[in-house]
């Protein structure tokens, strides 16, 4: 009895409260907004401090001459940009970068795909090979650089000894311009393979086996199966890997610094390495900023083109 008597009062009270809140412009989502800000705040702060501010600062600096502490001194407008595009050294650097990026991307994807396809075979000891193929994921750049320096060493290197044993003239891998680029490409592809292999291997495993069985029953050859089932089925993965590889190789720094330091004769002086040199060795922060902006634009452009071209081929 008591509760029954209480209940109506309670209802009236709560209704009154609600209408009062509504009339005062009470926003039921205000609390949600507060939570959103609370949750996003920390990462927003970190991003702002370490990404957005440096980005804007870089764009700002690219219009200035700086002293060697990185302080802007004279506003020069677009002169930094004009200077770069009329500099032969910079254009060479740009071309070298394009050659490097394209070569690395093509070889990484092709070799990664071949290894992944090979690793799907059910043969004895396949797990050993799967581990080996993905092992470079756990190798740091410095270790990789030392490893490849050993291999490429003109006197005691593995390759030189192999060439000598085969009665061929050993190649000066790191001191001849053309070969230095080749050596850098080989080492980078090797470094990339672990990750690429793993991603491709996962993608290949997820292709339903019945698709191949259906093809087998129709008498479709293995190579036709690869090009007309496997490749289209993993095309989204190929797309993903190609974009990652492209962006990563535009940003390559460690191997170059440790193996050739941009040499010989600037043959491997890629855009990122040039930025590093201009900023931290030459103290020319304005110019380095300009180069950074240009590199960012180039990467964005390439990614955009890739999206446009590959999107049409990734059809499901």
């Amino acid at each position: 009895m008591e509760t029954q008597a209480k209940n109506p009062n309670f209802n009236i009270a709560s209704k009154k409260k609600k209408s009062a809140e509504l009339s005062l412009g009470y926003n039921p989502y205000a609390k949600d907004k507060l939570y959103a800000v609370l949750f996003l705040g920390p990462s927003l702060l970190i991003l702002a401090l370490f990404v957005f501010y440096p980005m804007l600062r870089t764009i700002y600096l690219s219009f200035f001459l700086t002293n060697n502490l990185g302080k802007p001194t004279v506003f020069v407008g677009l002169k930094n940009y004009f200077a770069l595009f009329s500099s032969n050294a910079y254009i060479n650097s740009l071309i070298a970068t394009l050659v490097y990026v394209i070569a690395v991307s093509i070889f990484t994807i092709a070799i990664g795909l071949v290894l992944a396809q090979a690793a799907t075979k059910k043969v004895a000891g396949i797990n050993f090979f799967r581990t080996i193929f993905s092992a470079t994921m756990g190798v740091s750049v410095s270790v990789a650089a030392i490893f490849w320096l050993f291999i490429f060493n003109p006197s005691v290197g593995l390759l030189s000894q192999l060439f000598t044993a085969l009665n061929l003239t050993p190649i000066n891998w790191l001191t001849e311009p053309g070969w230095a680029m080749t050596a850098i490409v080989i080492s980078t592809v090797w470094m990339n393979l672990g990750f690429t292999f793993l991603i491709f291997f996962g993608a290949l495993q997820s292709v339903p086996y019945t698709l191949y069985e259906a093809a087998q029953i129709e008498g479709v050859s293995k190579s036709y199966q690869f090009f007309h089932i496997t490749l289209p089925m993993i095309s989204p993965t190929i797309f993903f890997v190609s974009i990652i590889t492209l962006i990563e190789s535009f940003k390559s720094f460690g191997l170059i610094d440790l193996m050739t330091a941009g040499g010989p004769n600037n043959a491997t002086n890629l855009l990122v390495y040039r930025i590093y040199q201009d900023a931290f060795l030459n103290g020319n922060y304005g110019l380095a900023s300009t180069e950074s902006v240009i590199l960012a634009v180039i990467i964005a452009l390439f990614t955009f083109i890739q999206f446009k071209v590959l999107e049409k081929r990734v059809t499901y």
Binding site: P208, T210, E213, A214, I217, P232, M233, S235, T315, Y316
Partner: peptide, 14 residues
């Protein structure tokens, strides 16, 4: 002979 599979084995990209 020919075969029809439980998951149909259709090619999603065709």
């Amino acid at each position: 002979l020919t075969m029809v599979f439980q998951n149909y084995a259709l090619f999603p990209f065709l």
